[in-house]
């Protein structure tokens, strides 16, 4: 087969164009792939920003919760005790020695109780930093708050006190989740018995809260768009790649189980 000069020229030009188009396509592909990488990185950055904002919000909420507990404690416990001491001391008649001695002893006892309450309050103030010393201790502190409110029969199995791993951001969110659940129980559940289990197994943190309150219809609350607290629970658990299950039955109480990859 013989080629003319013109044919050879056409073949050479076409072959060169093809040989140049190949690297050109490669460069276009790299450029578009690189743009995708940039977009992906931006998305990750935005997600990180959202996460940081949520952590900040959670921190503020934990602080607010602490302040609220302190205020309640000061008003309901220490304030009452000090008022009682003041009344007792005012009612002392020095001439009646025997009665006075009794009243002074009562006042002293009340004063000791006040000091003890103040110490507990001081611990609570430290508790704001407690999440830094471990999730187990933070949960313990939170349950102490619940005990002080009293009126509940508490059954606690906190195995997180012994764990040696930690994840500061997750710890803060988990503590806030527990606070939110406890607040909901106090506000709405009308429960008498609360059971709390917290343990770590196969790099998964399990937290379950059971109570025997009035329960609720989750679907109804969702449809009426009243469950902002519940939505917040779901959102936060999802943010740390966890799972939450809420089983509630009217008149029978509620069981909330949370599983979070940990640390």
């Amino acid at each position: 087969m013989q080629f003319s000069s013109t044919e050879v020229i056409i073949i050479i030009v076409l072959a060169t164009i093809i040989f140049l188009l190949a690297p050109l396509s490669l460069l276009i592909y790299i450029k578009s792939y690189n743009s995708l990488k940039v977009k992906d990185l931006e998305e990750k950055h935005n997600m990180q920003l959202k996460f940081d904002a949520e952590i900040l919000k959670t921190q503020i909420e934990v602080q607010e919760q602490t302040m609220q507990t302190i205020a309640t404690d000061l008003h309901d416990n220490i304030g009452q005790l000090l008022s009682l001491i003041s009344l007792t001391l005012n009612s002392i008649n020095i001439i009646e020695t025997e009665k006075s001695e009794k009243k002074i002893n009562t006042s002293l006892n009340l004063l000791h109780k006040s000091i003890k309450e103040l110490r507990d309050l001081a611990k609570l103030l430290q508790g704001e930093q407690l999440v830094k010393t471990g999730l187990g201790r933070a949960i313990k502190q939170e349950l102490n708050r619940l005990r002080r409110i009293s009126g509940y029969h508490l059954k606690v199995k906190n195995q997180l006190l012994a764990i040696k791993v930690s994840s500061p951001n997750k710890d803060l969110i988990i503590l806030r989740l527990l606070q939110e659940i406890i607040n909901n129980i106090i506000k709405h559940a009308k429960a008498t018995h609360i059971e709390i289990n917290a343990f770590l197994k196969n790099d998964m943190l399990h937290l379950s809260v059971t109570e025997n309150g009035i329960g609720f219809d989750y679907e109804e609350i969702k449809n009426q768009k009243r469950g902002i607290g519940l939505y917040s629970l779901y959102k936060r658990v999802e943010m740390i790649a966890g799972e939450i299950q809420i089983n509630s039955c009217t008149t029978r109480g509620t069981l909330i189980t949370i599983e979070i990859p940990y640390p």
Partner: peptide, 10 residues
């Protein structure tokens, strides 16, 4: 480099 050496194959 890629354009030049790939193109110069012809």
């Amino acid at each position: 480099v890629l354009f030049y050496y790939f193109g110069s194959t012809i």
